[in-house]
């Protein structure tokens, strides 16, 4: 019995050490919190201490921003609208801005949400095209967006005030 315990303990140590030697460790507390708060979750985007993602609960998908210091979602008043579907999102490094591409009433729109103003604003695309995938830089003042235009994919850069 004792021999079996030692063998099992040695095997466990080997597995744990093997993982830590790899240098990567799952953040189990965050992981448990993410699993608890949504039935499914996708489109992760990391800020410095922020995780934005699309969380699905009771059949509804919502953009969620979690403060990784306490694993708690912060309010995003006005970002989630019942008649729209988010297809890409990106949070700035400081967590103050979220860019998203959403489909609403058969239109695909590029949007910018500012947390300080709780305001969601549509960003025009010039020349016109259909946005698909979006990325913000650290301070949220530069945005890169994949756009389909004349049958091909381009990437536009948009400087924001």
């Amino acid at each position: 019995m004792r021999k079996r315990f030692i063998t099992t303990a040695s095997l466990l140590c080997f597995v744990v050490l093997g993982c830590s030697q790899n240098g990567i460790r799952p953040m189990t507390r965050v992981g448990a919190s993410l699993r608890r708060s949504a039935e499914s979750r996708r489109l992760p985007s990391m800020g410095q201490r922020w995780l934005a993602s699309l969380a699905s609960l009771n059949g509804r998908e919502r953009v969620e921003l979690i403060d990784l210091n306490n694993d708690t979602p912060v309010p995003l008043t006005g970002i989630n609208q019942a008649d729209s579907q988010t297809i890409s999102l990106s949070v700035s490094g400081d967590g103050q801005r979220i860019a998203l591409v959403r489909q609403r009433e058969e239109r695909t729109e590029l949007m910018l949400y500012r947390r300080t103003a709780s305001a969601l604003q549509r960003l025009p695309i010039n020349p016109p095209g259909v946005p698909r995938s979006v990325s913000l830089n650290g301070n949220g003042r530069l945005l890169a967006v994949q756009v389909s235009r004349k049958g091909r994919w381009d990437v536009d850069l948009i400087r924001l005030p």
Binding site: N137, G138, L157
Partner: peptide
Amino acid sequence: QQQDPALSGDGRLLAV
């Protein structure tokens, strides 16, 4: 054609 853009934090680099 370019897809799936990603900016560096400082905005100097773009991966596609």
